[in-house]
Design a protein around this nucleic acid. Structure first.
Length: 480
RNA sequence: GGCCCUGUCGUCUAAUGGUUAGGACAACGGGUUUUCAAUCCGUUAACCGGGGUUCGACUCCCCGCAGGGUCACCA
């Protein structure tokens, strides 16, 4: 590789939200730029006025920022290679379109949409690929650029095989059926993606193009355009598809490709999301078994060599696990403030440091907190439990004995300092008692049940500590 | 149908001719001072098939098979 500055880009179209596939592409491009001290450009491909969705540019910027993906040049901050919205670059496309017309490499499409459709239908019926160049007009009208109602402009291609190198897939080639006279400028005066991205990547000096593998089949067309414009090819880095969890098909909106910001709402950590997405189609390889990695560690380890070729299924279970791992790494303060902010206001009473440990070990994402509290499993902390006598009994210990054991426990706890009613103090006191008995369970189980009134709950020491000395003693007395 | 891509445990993957095919998630079993959770330990589980090349193939070649992509005035 030369000492040329590495420049990558992410070029979404503002047609809605960013889903995991798009973000993954952004992450890989970003990583490669970071890794090489290069430049990462954000470009908005708003050439399809019909599909454009209001507000989606802002939404995209917010999504990337949430994940900690920043750009050196982009629509909001400008930069050397601007403007960064294709709708603001129409003169540029027009200029290069004219250049191709002058060279005799582009021509006007004289057909109506209906005529085209008929050609296409015929090809399909004959089970042949549709090739526009089979219908190339003899004497096309002179091309006229108009904002609207013009004739489309097409590239005049040569039917030939193309070969190229992909940094992930290796040497690729395609038959001449893969090349066709595609549209450069649409009848509304806007360029197509196929034309605009090639011109822009050239002018923005992009060195590496990261994109998903559905673009492999159109690469010969791009190669034809590079030739026509007389420019060098950039490097191609093809990413494997992300597949839906159910099938083999590419993850689309239908089978759950969510807005990446939905994961923020669900309470996933951006670092975990980044980590997870970076590992869809990449890993550090070479016996490096790390999976829980910080963004910085990923940047340092990132390479093109270990980008996968085969598609990978989106596995939410693993995402949950990974998110939990990242939660565990959070500093105490940050853990607490996150948990507090995800406790719904009607459960405000639970916004207390005492609840942080028992909540944090039971969740894999912040939104699980609401589920736990909604389930009522923790209600007993603020509501006196109602006992079902049979559940107080431990195995086949007699009622008398249980009562006696509860008395013992109560006595042990009464001796503790009210102001130092900590988990470890309580544990010491109760264990001392329990160890004198036949089994620890015959003391610990009734105590836990007396405090919680539930089959399942955190351990008795933790509950007692949260309830405080007075409430603990009172519940024990009630149970007795 | 043409062109093209892909193929290791259920899932994500390591391995670049020589390993008892390794790790992680999930599942299952057990331990950890009673239950849940957490944690620790362990178990089950894979090279798509068939031919070659080679002393030796998950790794290289060929032929199949299966899955996917693409054939837009969408990106």
């Amino acid at each position: 590789m030369s000492d040329k500055k590495i420049i990558t880009r992410f070029a979404p179209s503002p047609t809605g939200f960013l889903h995991v596939g798009g973000v993954r592409t952004a992450i890989f491009s970003w990583l490669w730029a970071q890794k090489n001290n290069g430049v990462f450009i954000l470009r908005i491909e708003d050439t399809d006025k019909k599909r454009e969705v209001q507000g989606s540019i802002e939404h995209i910027l917010v999504s990337l920022k949430w994940l900690g993906i920043d750009w050196n040049e982009g629509p909001d901050i400008g930069g050397l290679h601007g403007p960064f919205k294709q709708s603001e670059r129409l003169d540029t496309y027009k200029k290069y379109a004219n250049l191709l017309v002058e060279k005799g490499l582009a021509y006007t499409d004289p057909y109506s949409p209906e005529e085209l459709q008929a050609f296409r239908k015929k090809a399909e019926e004959e089970k042949r690929p549709f090739l526009y160049r089979n219908h190339r007009p003899e004497n096309p009208p002179k091309w006229e650029y108009k904002q609207d109602g013009a004739r489309p402009l097409r590239l005049k291609t040569t039917a030939k095989k193309y070969k190229w190198r992909d940094l992930v897939r290796g040497d690729l080639e395609a038959g001449e059926e893969a090349v066709d006279d595609f549209v450069l400028i649409k009848s509304d005066g806007y360029p197509t993606y196929n034309f605009a991205h090639v011109v822009d990547d050239m002018l923005m000096e992009v060195t590496h193009i990261f994109r998903a593998d559905e673009f492999i089949s159109s690469t010969p067309n791009y190669l034809a355009l590079y030739e026509a414009l007389g420019i060098d090819r950039p490097e191609f880095v093809t990413l494997p598809p992300i597949l839906g969890e159910t099938g083999m098909k590419k993850l689309g909106k239908r089978d759950g490709a969510k807005d990446i910001l939905d994961y923020q709402k669900d309470g996933y950590l951006p670092e975990a999301m980044f980590n997870f997405l970076a590992f869809i189609g990449w890993n550090p390889g070479e016996g490096d078994n790390r999976e829980v990695m910080s963004k910085q560690e990923i940047v340092e380890s990132f390479d093109l060599k270990h980008i996968q070729r085969a598609g990978a299924k989106f596995n939410e279970e693993k995402l949950n696990w990974l998110n939990k791992e990242h939660i565990k790494k959070l500093p105490k303060k940050e853990l607490e403030s996150n948990i507090f902010s995800f406790i719904p206001s009607k459960y405000e009473k639970y916004r207390d440091s005492k609840f942080v440990p028992i909540l944090s070990e039971r969740i894999s994402k912040w939104s699980d907190i609401k589920e736990i509290l909604d389930s009522g499993d923790f209600d007993f902390f603020f509501k006196a439990p109602i006992y079902e006598k049979s559940k107080l009994i431990f195995r086949n210990t007699s009622v008398e004995r249980i009562k006696n054991n509860l008395q013992l426990a109560k006595k042990a706890l009464e001796n503790l300092d009210k102001n130092n009613f900590s988990v470890s103090e309580i544990k010491n006191a109760l264990m001392l008692m329990a160890d004198n008995l036949e089994s620890r369970g015959e003391l610990l189980h009734p105590v836990r049940f007396a405090l919680s009134g539930r089959d399942k709950s955190p351990d008795p020491f933790t509950i007692a500590s949260i309830l405080g000395k007075d409430e603990t003693i009172s519940r024990l007395q009630k149970a007795i």
